[in-house]
């Protein structure tokens, strides 16, 4: 599996996806194809290694979810991206495909408040259960006080 083969395979199967770059292949998808593309990448492209998943807050344009997966044997890396749109904070979870997405998506929920549908155990991971707000959103000030310790 070379990068060119991967690119044509993605182009044949997912016509709605934009493919850019070379290392890694950056694939921008609509939200409803997020989970099915991950399944396709794992079985067809051989990207079995789950590197990380996270999100970016683009203020008015809404949140963007990013995940990166690798094929360790052939050196094909895919960065998956999807825009959730303004005001939307739900996204399909990748846990049914990759077990490594479990903690990564919990962290993403903790920091951005994105609800991953289909996640078996979605709760805060880094901050305490009583924390208010989602710190990595651009609307959250870095020095927001938290009583009683300030």
């Amino acid at each position: 599996m070379t990068r060119e083969q991967a690119r044509t395979l993605i182009g044949e199967r997912y016509s709605g996806a934009q493919v850019e770059g070379d290392t890694p292949l950056v694939v921008t998808l609509p939200v409803d194809q997020w989970l099915s593309f991950a399944q396709f990448a794992k079985t067809t492209l051989g990207c079995r290694f789950f590197s990380f998943s996270s999100a970016v807050d683009w203020k008015e344009q809404g949140l963007e979810v990013v995940a990166r997966i690798d094929n360790l044997n052939d050196g094909v890396s895919v960065t998956m991206k999807t825009r959730l749109g303004p005001g939307v904070s739900t996204c399909p979870s990748l846990v049914p495909v990759y077990r490594g997405a479990d903690w990564m998506e919990r962290e993403c929920y903790d920091m951005f408040g994105i609800h991953f549908e289909g996640h078996p155990d979605l709760r805060r991971i880094l901050l305490g259960d009583d924390w208010e707000g989602h710190p990595l959103l651009k609307s959250y000030a870095v020095d927001t006080p938290h009583p009683p310790y300030r």
Binding site: L127, P135, Y140, A141, V142, D143, T144, H146, Y149, R150
Partner: peptide, 13 residues
Amino acid sequence: RHGYHVVKGVDRV
């Protein structure tokens, strides 16, 4: 010190 999750000195505890 400016982080939201950091206690600004252990002498507050």
